[in-house]
Simulated scan of single mutants.
Amino acid sequence: MKRRTMTAALCAALLLTAVTTGAAVASGPHEERPSREAAALTGTAELYRSAGDDITFSFDAHLAAVDNDDPLKATGTFEFSHYLNGEGARAKAEVDCLLTGGDVAVVSGVITDSDLPGAEGRRVGVTVHDLGRHDRLGYSWAATGSPAEGAELPRCVSSAPFEKVRKGTGDFEVVPWQPRL
């Protein structure tokens, strides 16, 4: 009899704990929960080149939930560099557009800082395909030439993600955009 009483008391205590914990979680204030971003692209990776080029891309681009209907209100920065045998350049751009769909993101921005002559003030675009450990990347200047040359690029324009990320370096994360259609 004592054993049945103990088991019943234990079951009652576990049930009471589960109910009160569930009620506390369910009744928490909704305004304290952070709202999901409308879209985002974050992370850093090095590209693979058989010649040994040192190429790095880093992203911190976001579209706030309140701006869900306007990808041109995206904010943040992205940086890239390309060096081979001690020669090359780096650049930092201010995001001016971010579009994402599924695990693909296209971001564009205006270069604000660079050691490539003529690059500052020019718009560039980059495409990322977030494939876990096998991310891919493409960039507008693959088709248009150096970021310091050519015609003005429209916002959110880039190339297909044709480059492979060096094994073990990719940590891109894409938050897919969910526009109200």
Rank of each mutant, 00 (worst) to 15 (best):
R3D: 09
R4H: 08
R4A: 12
T5I: 13
T5Q: 13
T5C: 01
M6V: 14
A8K: 02
A13M: 13
A13G: 07
A13C: 13
A18I: 06
V19G: 08
T20H: 03
G22I: 06
A23W: 15
V25E: 12
S27Q: 14
S27V: 08
H30Q: 12
H30Y: 08
E31M: 05
R33M: 13
R33H: 02
P34R: 14
S35A: 12
T42Y: 06
L47H: 08
S50W: 13
D53T: 02
D53P: 00
I55V: 15
I55Q: 09
T56L: 12
S58M: 05
F59T: 02
F59A: 03
H62W: 00
L63H: 04
L63G: 03
A65N: 05
D67S: 10
D67W: 09
D67K: 00
D69P: 08
D69C: 06
D70K: 05
L72T: 15
L72W: 05
K73G: 00
G76N: 04
E79M: 08
F80S: 02
H82P: 00
Y83K: 12
N85G: 14
N85Q: 11
G86A: 11
E87K: 15
E87Q: 14
G88Y: 10
G88F: 09
G88C: 12
A89N: 11
R90T: 10
R90Y: 15
C97W: 06
C97V: 06
L98E: 00
L98T: 02
L99G: 00
T100N: 03
T100W: 01
T100D: 04
G101I: 03
G101D: 11
G102E: 11
D103M: 13
S108I: 12
S108V: 12
I111E: 00
T112L: 00
P117Y: 15
G118E: 10
G118A: 12
A119T: 05
E120F: 09
G121S: 10
R122G: 01
R123H: 03
R123G: 02
V124A: 02
V126K: 02
V128F: 05
H129V: 00
H129R: 14
D130P: 03
L131T: 07
L131W: 02
H134L: 13
H134N: 14
R136C: 05
Y139G: 02
S140Q: 09
T144F: 09
T144G: 00
P147Q: 01
E149T: 09
E152K: 05
E152Y: 00
P154Y: 10
P154H: 11
R155F: 02
R155S: 06
R155Q: 10
C156W: 04
V157N: 01
A160H: 04
A160T: 12
F162P: 01
E163Q: 13
E163F: 15
K167W: 10
T169H: 04
G170F: 08
D171G: 12
E173K: 13
E173I: 03
V175Q: 08
Q178F: 05
L181I: 08
